[in-house]
């Protein structure tokens, strides 16, 4: 299949989501806005896990760093939307760089546990310094921050469009990245690290690059989530939010550009529907994880790629 087809497919999704702004009923409209922001998080996670093979169990620290980098600047200093977002992104870059320099000295199971531990430490730190972070309760983002170029970001329509724009930019960036030689070297490292080193690629630096890109996109998503939906809380930095992107990416298809969105969409509605029935909605996530690892290890889009469209990026 030629490049025209997959550009068509991805741009088609973007167009479809734009059309959704005009036709979706209010409740779904709000849901899809949320899903698009969360899909950005999943796309960021996918760059580390899906493409580079770095299975992190601590990406919530990057999501949380973005959220709190943005939120604290807004909460304590009444920063505008752009400087606050910039602070969130910078927090993500710095944290992923530091974590990468340390955690990438390990691999496999150790890497999973180290990332989990770092993330736990950050989540507990957010709870501990409650004078600054408001601890478990979290805080509401002041309305002064939630204005951008004359738009009120608490308004449903503006919120959807900003989420859509962010989603589109990150989707296109991911598509570009994985076709670029960097993205191809990420895949080479995932498949056979020793061989890639002996082709002259510095494994550590490349993985560090992948992790920083991944962490930064995750932080961008965390910052945007707080900005658009108006709340920052320590739960977003907790273990559950490290498991979610893994779940979304596994369900949608690791190492595919569309997989994270598809996975986030399915899981969001699965949990949305089941939380109407029971408080134990995470049961669905648990069952999904087990069934996925057993029966659908490539995920939904991954199956399509494997069976029908092998060149799908």
């Amino acid at each position: 299949m030629t490049a025209r087809y997959y550009w068509g497919l991805h741009l088609g999704l973007i167009a479809l989501l734009f059309a959704g702004h005009f036709v979706l009923p209010a409740y779904q409209h709000g849901n899809v806005a949320r899903i698009m922001v969360l899909a950005v998080y999943a796309m960021g996670y996918n760059i580390a896990f899906g493409y580079t093979g770095l299975l992190s169990l601590g990406h919530a620290m990057f999501f949380g760093a973005g959220m709190y980098g943005m939120g604290l600047l807004s909460y304590h200093f009444d920063a505008g939307a752009l400087p606050a977002m910039a602070a969130g992104i910078v927090a993500g870059v710095v944290l992923s760089l530091v974590v990468g320099l340390l955690a990438l000295r390990t691999a496999g199971v150790s890497f999973m546990i180290v990332t989990l531990m770092f993330s736990q430490a950050l989540a507990m730190t957010l709870v501990y310094f409650r004078d600054i972070t408001r601890g478990d309760e979290g805080f509401v983002i002041p309305s002064a921050t939630r204005r951008l170029w004359g738009m009120d970001l608490s308004d449903e329509a503006h919120r959807y469009l900003i989420a859509w724009a962010l989603f589109s930019v990150v989707l296109i960036f991911t598509l570009w990245l994985v076709r670029h030689r960097w993205g191809r070297v990420f895949v080479a490292l995932r498949e056979n690290e020793e061989r890639a080193s002996l082709l002259g690629y510095d494994a550590f630096r490349t993985k560090l690059g992948a992790l920083v890109i991944s962490g930064t996109i995750s932080a961008l998503s965390g910052a945007a989530y707080a900005l658009l939906f108006g709340y920052a809380g320590a739960t977003f930095a907790g273990v559950q939010y490290s498991i979610f992107p893994l779940l979304w990416v596994l369900l949608g298809g690791a190492g595919t550009v569309l997989g994270p969105f598809v996975g986030a969409l399915f899981m969001f509605y699965l949990i949305d529907l089941s939380s109407g029935v029971t408080d134990a909605y995470m049961l669905i996530a648990g069952v999904a994880l087990v069934l996925l690892t057993l029966f659908l290890p490539h995920g939904l889009v991954g199956e399509v790629k494997r069976r029908l469209w092998r060149d799908l990026p």
Partner: peptide, 18 residues
Amino acid sequence: SVFGKLTCHENVALAAMR
């Protein structure tokens, strides 16, 4: 020790790309 899941083309391209 080739990249087993990638095509021959991609294997050689990775070698040439650096």
